[in-house]
Amino acid sequence: MKIAIVDPGSGNLASVLRALERVIAESGRQAQAVVTTDAAEVRDADRIVLPGQGAFAACRRGLDALPGMVDALQDAVIESGKPFLGICVGMQLMAERGLEHGTTPGLGWIRGEIAPMDPRGPDGAALPLPQMGWNGLELAQPSHPLLEGLRPGLHAYFVHSYALAGGDPAQLLASTTYGGPVAAIVGRDNMAGTQFHVEKSSLVGLRILANFLRWKPETAA
């Protein structure tokens, strides 16, 4: 098994690679994770991970700057049904558009847009942004294969000021609460994305990555 970690010019690539190498070693699988900017390597991979951090527009520009990469992702994920995991802004890029630093098209794989958060406490006062730190997960679809072994209330590590708005409830796998509900994990078919950093989320993140290695979506080729 080959896992391609796409490098759009941002993201904790080394941390994601280390986390994947750890779960590969613990699983005893014959698998290799590689960081790549090569569209052909993404097409040839068995599974694809897209990390990202910073601004939506910058990450999309970074992805567009890689020759053939957007087409390779479309071919591998949509046409060939290979398992895909977006992390943080990588998850946000799955949406239809982002509103950070102007309106920027997303990949359009899930419904909704990435809009600025306006979290409020019980007294109506604004909560700090970015939402940064450990927040509990509420599982909307606990039977999803990526959530195997997780229970409600487990914490993951978030750092973001923008979040998915107008999403399809059927595509929400888990949420968190920060001045109201916030999409934490989304997905459909052979793709999923986490708003939080799995590579920084300790045992919860490692469990999700291990589940990702085992995941066999019905649409996968």
Rank of each mutant, 00 (worst) to 15 (best):
M1V: 13
K2F: 13
K2P: 02
I3G: 04
A4H: 07
D7W: 02
P8M: 05
P8A: 06
L13A: 02
L13C: 01
L13E: 01
A14G: 00
S15Q: 06
S15N: 12
V16Q: 05
V16C: 09
L17M: 07
L17F: 01
R18M: 07
R18C: 07
A19K: 08
E21V: 08
E21M: 09
R22E: 11
V23R: 02
V23D: 00
A25H: 07
S27V: 03
S27Q: 04
Q30W: 04
A31N: 07
A31T: 14
A31V: 07
A33W: 09
A33H: 09
V34D: 08
V34S: 03
V35I: 14
T36W: 12
T36H: 05
T37D: 07
D38A: 14
D38C: 14
A39D: 10
A40Y: 14
A40R: 10
E41H: 11
V42Y: 12
R43H: 13
D44Q: 15
L50G: 06
Q53L: 15
Q53T: 15
Q53H: 03
A55V: 10
A55E: 04
A58V: 05
C59A: 15
R60C: 11
R61G: 04
R61E: 15
R61A: 15
R61W: 08
L63I: 12
L63P: 04
L63T: 08
L63Y: 10
D64W: 10
D64L: 15
L66D: 06
L66F: 02
G68W: 07
M69P: 03
V70H: 01
V70T: 15
A72H: 07
A72R: 01
L73P: 10
Q74H: 14
D75Y: 14
D75P: 00
A76M: 14
A76Y: 15
I78S: 05
E79H: 14
S80L: 13
K82W: 13
K82G: 13
P83Q: 00
F84D: 00
F84G: 00
I87Y: 05
I87A: 03
C88G: 05
V89Y: 03
G90C: 10
M91W: 11
L93V: 13
L93H: 04
M94H: 03
A95E: 07
E96S: 12
G102S: 10
G102W: 00
T104Y: 11
T104F: 08
P105V: 05
P105F: 08
P105K: 02
G106K: 00
G106H: 03
W109P: 02
W109R: 02
W109K: 03
I110S: 00
I110T: 03
R111F: 04
G112D: 09
E113A: 12
E113R: 11
E113I: 13
P116Q: 08
P116C: 04
M117I: 12
M117G: 00
D118P: 02
D118A: 11
P119I: 08
P119N: 01
R120Q: 07
R120T: 05
G121L: 11
P122Q: 06
D123Q: 09
A126Y: 10
A126V: 12
L129F: 12
Q131G: 09
M132H: 10
N135G: 09
N135R: 01
N135I: 15
G136W: 08
L137W: 12
L137Q: 05
